[in-house]
Design a protein around this nucleic acid. Structure first.
Lengths: 162, 162
DNA sequence: CAGTTTATGTCAGCACCGTTGACATGAAGC
DNA sequence: GCTTCATGTCAACGGTGCTGACATAAACTG
């Protein structure tokens, strides 16, 4: 209904049909994206929430709980449940801040880095294959569209942290 | 990116850093991708599972329960819980098959189509904006990479159904 | 026709991970 | 010293995955 046929070919990529294909592509691709790490997490009796925490602690070692909350977009109660088990299991270390003693600075232990590496390897393997088959130009387009789809604040976060 | 640089540069898009950026882009973009419909679903006391069912029933009216199970990749118990409420609430109609009376053919009612349209509108609005800002070439790349990231069987499903 | 397989529905129970609300502690800041 | 902030924790609930078991009706098969 809202396709721009009258305006010529240049907007054909914005037809409802194309947009629906985009939506379904996101849905199916995200399933693939999480499938490999999910299988590994099962073996350790962890879930996706643990993966996300581990990923971002690895990314920004020494980050605070509040930072992590903002990145993950969950409540502190949710995060804490996950964080507690990771600390108990010796994957994450929580250090009292020196400048501000209220803060807890989170880092991965050796054991935590090992699991991070295992998860990361599984996930990047699939992405590497996809990137290689798609080629650099497609990858650039992929990232451009994804960035445009993010919420404003998340995009700034994403770009700012490179 | 299609400049004639030395071959050494051509694989820079496959570095670990680039792949990690790709992973995070997927994570943040998927959040944006689901945010708008999630807000609407909350108002109706439905969840993402309902959205997915509605989406694919709308996509393939008359599809059977078994088909839907394959597409959604969940157990029949999970799907049934969702489907039951949708039928009870008068959004979905379940019709006994004529050729094979064991099958149930699922279609959206008027009310179901209305919710589908509302959800779809919210989700395509964001994607349309993202597509428009990114441009047709980026969109092509986006879809290429996503297809490459899908599992084999899902890709066939995705391509087959256009 | 009898036996098997298929499509579907349903009950019960469990796990994960999101939520809200309430409350506690210790540290920082005015 | 009062307030605010960062964090942790308890309790309860909701949505949506899962497994396992069982039921029914229809189709298929020998």
């Amino acid at each position: 209904m809202s396709d721009g046929r009258a305006r010529g070919d240049s907007l054909l990529f914005l037809t409802d049909a194309q947009l629906r294909r985009g939506i379904e592509a996101m849905f199916f691709a995200y399933r693939g994206f999480t499938a490999d790490p999910d299988r590994i997490l099962d073996q350790y009796e962890y879930g996706r929430a643990h993966h996300r925490a581990i990923h971002f602690i690895n990314r920004w070692p020494g980050t605070t709980v509040n930072n992590l909350l903002a990145i993950l977009g969950v409540t502190k109660q949710s995060l804490n449940r996950v964080l507690r088990t990771l600390i108990e299991d010796g994957l994450v270390e929580s250090a009292i801040g020196t400048r501000d003693r209220r803060e807890r600075h989170l880092t991965l232990t050796e054991k935590g880095r090992a699991l991070e590496a295992e998860l990361s390897e599984a996930q990047t393997a699939r992405m590497r294959d996809a990137f290689r088959r798609a080629g650099p130009e497609a990858v650039a387009g992929f990232r451009t569209v994804l960035e445009e789809m993010m919420d404003e604040d998340l995009r700034r976060l994403f770009e700012g942290v490179a």
